[in-house]
Simulated assay, not measured.
Amino acid sequence: MSSKQHKVRVGISVGDFNGIGPEIIMKALNDKSITDFFTPIIFASGKLFTYQKNIFKLQQTFNYINEVSEAQGGKINMVNLWKDNVNVELGKPTEESTKMAVDSLEAATAALLNNEIDVLVTAPINKDEMMKQGFAHAGHTGYLEEKAGKKGLMFLVTDDLKVAVSTHHIPVSQVASSISKESIKKQIKLLNQCLIEDFQIQKPKIAVLGLNPHAGDGGQIGREEIEIIQPAIAEIFDNGIMAFGPFPADSYFQPEKYRNYDAVLAMYHDQGLAPFKTLAYADGVNYTAGLPFIRTSPDHGVAYDIAGQNIADEQSFREAIFAAVKIFKNRSEYQTLMESRLKPKRAAADNGVDEDLPKDSAR
């Protein structure tokens, strides 16, 4: 079956169920035709979702299964991880909701690594509460990097705005010491390859932001641009990657500027995510780029303040699902094309002999 015919198996982790995770999952899957496009597999609790779908007055049925292999096309499948009753306290994290967020993520990731699902879409988690209970990472990205055994790149995407960040969840006081010429070069290369393989952009143009106000003002407001960022861009450009900058962050995100580039690499979390969420909040998707598997999520958090009020907007979560499906198909198509490339044979100019044959056979 070709990648275009394959119905992608979308694994979904539940996040913190006292936030808006279950609500946006169910709303995003509420269209009866949704399973024509992919096969959803939620890692959660049947009793939890039955309770919450009644709150939101949703008419959904789930195919409850014990193993991922039992999932069926045309149905909303749920791996029933917890058989006991669930104590729901909408609007605040609890030890139980935090533990289930971890369990769901670990079960879904295991299925991803075992090729039982094709992509992973994660509902929002409470990072602080998870770390208090022993989770070793400040978010999904670090956890998935550990499982993949390689560094990824936090990449926020819409159709016309794509923002990656060089440093992830670290204090602002550590940002300057955490960037280096080599790390920026690796990130630009990774971003370039991601745009080619996952978004089918043949010759990407990548903008890179400066770290300091006004991109350092020629060294008057910091020298990281002169000593680190600009040399990295220059070396990458000389190697054939279309990277430009560093640009001042305060003026880059004007529409007539950012639309001239296929993606931007910001130096730290809020430098990239604050303008992204302002410009593209409802449609934004968080994609962990550069890993051997595909993971997306909505670009918002657990939203305890509106949990249970039936007003959470599922658009970003729906976009995360369809982005994961599209990236999977793009990447599969790219890999197929690379595997089937014709390798030209070297032939002798004067006698047509195939020079790849052993010398004694060319007679």
Results as ranks from 00 to 15, higher is better:
residue 239 N to G: 08
residue 363 R to V: 08
residue 176 A to V: 11
residue 213 P to Y: 02
residue 242 M to N: 15
residue 240 G to W: 10
residue 149 G to F: 07
residue 177 S to V: 07
residue 253 F to M: 01
residue 112 L to A: 03
residue 264 V to I: 01
residue 358 P to T: 01
residue 219 G to S: 03
residue 36 D to P: 03
residue 342 L to V: 10
residue 304 Y to S: 03
residue 193 Q to W: 09
residue 333 E to M: 15
residue 335 Q to W: 13
residue 146 E to N: 14
residue 2 S to T: 06
residue 82 W to M: 05
residue 2 S to Y: 08
residue 182 E to R: 08
residue 20 I to G: 11
residue 252 Y to L: 06
residue 62 F to C: 01
residue 217 D to G: 07
residue 71 A to S: 12
residue 12 I to D: 00
residue 237 F to M: 02
residue 213 P to T: 00
residue 285 V to F: 15
residue 320 A to Q: 11
residue 229 I to E: 06
residue 60 Q to H: 12
residue 218 G to K: 04
residue 297 S to N: 08
residue 197 E to Q: 13
residue 167 T to W: 14
residue 297 S to C: 03
residue 105 L to K: 01
residue 88 V to D: 07
residue 349 A to D: 10
residue 150 K to D: 06
residue 261 Y to E: 01
residue 317 F to I: 00
residue 270 D to C: 04
residue 278 T to I: 11
residue 259 R to Q: 14
residue 157 V to D: 02
residue 344 P to D: 03
residue 85 N to S: 04
residue 293 F to K: 00
residue 120 L to S: 09
residue 216 G to Q: 07
residue 191 L to N: 10
residue 167 T to C: 08
residue 109 T to E: 00
residue 285 V to T: 14
residue 130 M to E: 05
residue 26 M to I: 07
residue 8 V to I: 15
residue 358 P to V: 00
residue 112 L to C: 08
residue 18 N to R: 04
residue 256 E to I: 01
residue 76 I to S: 07
residue 2 S to R: 09
residue 71 A to D: 05
residue 294 I to Q: 14
residue 30 N to E: 15
residue 93 P to A: 02
residue 225 E to F: 13
residue 123 A to S: 11
residue 110 A to P: 05
residue 212 N to T: 04
residue 280 A to M: 08
residue 266 A to Y: 03
residue 71 A to M: 11
residue 52 Q to T: 12
residue 325 V to I: 13
residue 146 E to C: 10
residue 345 K to T: 09
residue 1 M to D: 11
residue 196 I to S: 04
residue 276 F to L: 10
residue 130 M to I: 01
residue 277 K to V: 05
residue 74 G to V: 06
residue 141 T to C: 03
residue 200 Q to H: 15
residue 152 G to P: 13
residue 209 L to C: 05
residue 131 M to C: 10
residue 78 M to C: 07
residue 307 A to T: 09
residue 119 V to Q: 04
residue 323 A to L: 10
residue 330 N to L: 04
residue 83 K to R: 12
residue 100 M to E: 05
residue 286 N to V: 03
residue 66 N to C: 04
residue 71 A to I: 06
residue 215 A to Y: 14
residue 275 P to S: 02
residue 101 A to T: 14
